[in-house]
Amino acid sequence: MKKAIISVLGNDRPGIIAAVSRLLYENESNIENVGQTSLQSEFAGIFIATIPARLSFPELESQLAEVLDPMGLQVHVKPMEPRHEATNGTVGESFVITTRGPDQKGLVARVTEIIARHQVNITNCQAVFKGGDDPNSNIMIYEVDIPPQTDQQALFHDLRQKGAELKLHVGIQHRDIFMTLNRI
């Protein structure tokens, strides 16, 4: 047995998960994890499955493409690789970085550049842009894991400085405050 990562991208419609999972089942494969998200009308799904040794990755991809192409979906299969060093589980502390203010070109690039420079991994990223002047209607949200070796204060300083430059309200708060307020 070996592990495959299958990614599916395309216009959202009923039956995508069903089509992928049926084909995997027919190939005696086992789905370990599935994640999916929909942005506006677009679907993106990622499946981690153990597949039989005899089944090659290109063979699986071509079988999936046969089913998914007619549905207007792109599929890509690749072998699962060992964990990359930057995300190797030595999770430090989880913070939520928010920038509030009107959308502008390069907003995400300039903020994430700082996060990347400090070797911090973004675990989740969401954009809430409704337009208008209310800062709470235009928010970028980055959930990050800050490794123990990262200089938190230097990261926060750089982010706040960039926020001031871009005229954004920058919030940096430990994730627990959001969990505490919203979840039992």
Partner: peptide, 12 residues
């Protein structure tokens, strides 16, 4: 994973 609603309501 937090939802954007949870984050926005907390910020408010």
């Amino acid at each position: 994973m937090l939802t954007s609603r949870e984050i926005v309501s907390t910020l408010e």
